[in-house]
Design a protein around this nucleic acid. Sequence first.
DNA 1: TTTT
DNA 2: TTTT
Lengths: 165, 165, 165, 165
Amino acid sequence: MLNRVILIGRLTKDPELRYTPAGVAVTQFTIAVDRPFSSQGGEREADFIPVVTWRQLAETCANYLRKGRLTAVEGRIQVRNYDNNEGKRVYVTEVIADNVRFLESNRDSGGSRDDGGSYGGSAPSSNNQPSRGGNNNSGYSRGPAADPFSDDGKPIDISDDDLPF
Amino acid sequence: MLNRVILIGRLTKDPELRYTPAGVAVTQFTIAVDRPFSSQGGEREADFIPVVTWRQLAETCANYLRKGRLTAVEGRIQVRNYDNNEGKRVYVTEVIADNVRFLESNRDSGGSRDDGGSYGGSAPSSNNQPSRGGNNNSGYSRGPAADPFSDDGKPIDISDDDLPF
Amino acid sequence: MLNRVILIGRLTKDPELRYTPAGVAVTQFTIAVDRPFSSQGGEREADFIPVVTWRQLAETCANYLRKGRLTAVEGRIQVRNYDNNEGKRVYVTEVIADNVRFLESNRDSGGSRDDGGSYGGSAPSSNNQPSRGGNNNSGYSRGPAADPFSDDGKPIDISDDDLPF
Amino acid sequence: MLNRVILIGRLTKDPELRYTPAGVAVTQFTIAVDRPFSSQGGEREADFIPVVTWRQLAETCANYLRKGRLTAVEGRIQVRNYDNNEGKRVYVTEVIADNVRFLESNRDSGGSRDDGGSYGGSAPSSNNQPSRGGNNNSGYSRGPAADPFSDDGKPIDISDDDLPF
DNA sequence: TTTT
DNA sequence: TTTT
């Protein structure tokens, strides 16, 4: 009925932009969020939370976010599952973001109107499709090697069926 | 730096109250949160999100929440990991709740001052320890069969080290 | 940069649906949110928070919400100001809602697909305009007596300029 | 039942630390939060939202926050009212913060363990009382000139009765 | 492996 | 398998 998440943390790596077979942009990154207390051993701890963005927001994130940047993410928790190659059901929990705010300016970025940040649907005349012509011969659709997130050890499991809207 | 989650949904089962070896109360339940859109096939979908509560709040949830009840949960996302029996690292994502609101009254409950609901630290004179005498001979500390959540297929992996505060 | 509010409480009155001079639907209501603690005198207290919804969401709220209903509201805080008839600047703080969830079913309502609740933009084929023909001769545009919120003592101060999107 | 606000914006002025007659620290500041869209005229707009912090958090905010700093605030909406000197009831809406994160480092601050930020109750051995000796002859209790917020045109209206916990 |  |  209601599902809202707000996070502030730092990217653990540069974001990765890919395209679904139908040509929809999707970007994944992980945000490290420091916990408000130390562990019993005294060391600082963090939660490493996977974030997924789609369409226009995916492309904006891929363009402006970089490893280490302080970032605010607003979205919802999604729990996906799939059967892995051993036939075992695996559950994946991610935050599907609809609003990302860049809290540290990108020295090399062109002037953004909002001192950083992007709403899911805020690009007025964007069609939320990759502007790469009619042939969506993206890496994504070509096979495992180019599929989203496969290079960080996660299975190939984002498809057009996962489109959140 | 900031990690906040608010969910409204329904419990998929009665909550399960257990105790850590040190005698700290911990309750786990799953909340089904309907997505705001239907899948491409047209059927309704939901995210099934695991929730953990500790101490006084754990005991209140165990007492008042039941399967199917509409419930609001406020907390933070936590990502734990442990090595399973095949030596593989497994990641578990849960919401650690610090505020739970009971949105459907429990016909058989005594009159709560707040028409349902409980803050993590709101019980004024609670010591957040199970009131079961000095001997914490809880099921939890006795062995795998009685350990938290093992009966729903999850490994035994909540210990006093997981205490969030 | 980021402005997010989530409230759960009860309507203090039936909502009021009006139209701007340009014919845009706007509904106002107040939600009473119990505080999580009692005052020093011991009595229960609540915050009475004004909520505004626009367009399709305004019409859905006017149709389904009623006084006393338990309701979840998601939106942003907006602070407007205007000069009153004594030339003094007055500040008005409201929650502009983009998501409202009906937590208590309306016995007399037709079957909603979502057991209650409505997203700001979720009505697929709604044009977010009042379906009252080309002549927007609404009460709102006619004069004080029919203007939004004037009957609860608030000045007439919502115009098309206040449209949040 | 539930009342949660999360804001990210910039302080419009340095915060003001005062003490109630009973000696409880209270800090007020205003945070400017840019709206995610421009007005019809095209200019950027912002909401100016008053924030109040109490006790230890008040002192931390007074020490570390400065005009212009990017800041995240977590709390609840509170609506107070009082009768002004003309006998008219005035409503004041504020965010009572329980968590404030400093998103821009204070060049001149000593090394904070948390790269900025403070939870309401996180100072382990703080007594939440001003460390100014037994005589609470604070400016607050002495008269209008030193009273909280009076210098920005707001009436003198915070007392110990307003303590949120 | 799920709620209504 | 991680950010500062």
